[in-house]
Nucleic acid binder design. Structure first.
Length: 279
DNA sequence: AGCTACTCCTGGTAGC
DNA sequence: TGCTACCAGGAGTAGC
């Protein structure tokens, strides 16, 4: 499922084909994808001036007569895909939204499970403003993470998945990051020691950077780059989807548990549960 | 404040 | 083979 590295890959791929283009017409095949009933009139005639990413959101800034005119905010959720292709192009049976551009290309938003969104937002900050820091930005420092973890009293994995805490991690990269950090997902955030926070910070950045370099992870039929290529980071997985298999580091069998209703993968030896405090 | 449960969806798969 | 039942899971929300 698309997380920060996958969305970054998509944005890098479609940016050049979208920036500077004007939307000539819009076709919505599934209303819930665009949410608002006036999506078409809000986007048709607008020029796409900047395509960028915030956390797992794809943001397309719009302008009319050189003046800012809101943005399209897209989220792939589980199975969303974006294609920008010349006609004729068949997006298949799961097409949800089509935007015809002034160069003859068409932007297709395709989504099997219909969880994805492709909305117009007059003020995208209403959504994006709630998000925590970008984990690859200068805002995300060791000091910040160390302090912020202790300021919360949360299950560590659940906290890292909370987009208002830190924005862009999902189930896969959290599991991978926690394994590399030697931290159990059920660790209480307030009990993470400074040295552990520093390790966690380094591993979050290392995992995300490496995954971006490999154009994300593709382990099922869903995520592909917009060019149709699979990502390569799944070859680096140490725990995600590897329950029952030996840990690549110590050989112990990887276990699966559920944390906050999410499938969770741990090496019980590399990620020991911290002993309960006797009190 | 933090937690669980529920919702949205459908392809894939386990079990029979 | 063909059927059914259940699972995966971002994010939002309701309720405790």
């Amino acid at each position: 499922m698309p997380e920060l590295p996958e969305v970054e890959t998509v944005v890098r791929s479609i940016r050049k084909r979208l920036e500077g283009r004007t939307i000539e017409s819009a076709l919505v095949h599934w209303r819930r994808t665009v949410v608002a009933p006036d999506f078409e009139e809000r986007v048709v005639g607008a020029r796409m001036v900047r395509v960028w990413r915030r956390a797992k959101y794809i943001v397309i800034d719009l302008a009319r007569k050189k003046r800012p005119a809101g943005a399209i905010v897209g989220h792939l959720r589980m199975t969303g895909r974006i294609h920008v292709e010349k006609r004729p192009f068949d997006p298949g049976p799961y097409k949800k939204v089509e935007l015809a551009l002034d160069d003859g290309r068409v932007l297709h938003f395709v989504d099997v499970r219909k969880f994805g969104r492709f909305e117009f937002a007059a003020d995208p900050e209403r959504v994006l403003g709630k998000l925590g820091p970008e984990p690859l930005s200068d805002d995300f420092t060791v000091q910040w993470l160390d302090t912020a973890l202790r300021a919360k009293r949360r299950v560590l994995k659940s906290l890292l998945l909370d987009q208002t805490f830190v924005a862009g991690l999902g189930n896969i990269y959290v599991d991978e990051t926690l394994h590399r950090s030697g931290l159990h997902p059920l660790t209480r955030s307030e009990r993470v020691k400074p040295a552990e926070a520093a390790r966690l910070h380094a591993e979050i950045q290392a995992v995300l950077t490496s995954a971006i370099e490999r154009e994300g992870s593709s382990f099922d039929v869903f995520y592909r780059t917009p060019e149709g290529n699979p990502g390569q980071y799944q070859d680096e997985f140490r725990v995600y989807g590897r329950d029952g298999k030996p840990c690549r580091k110590c050989g112990t069998i990887i276990e699966r548990l559920v944390v906050g209703q999410r499938g969770t993968h741990v090496c019980p030896r590399c990620q020991p549960r911290s002993p309960k405090r006797s009190k």
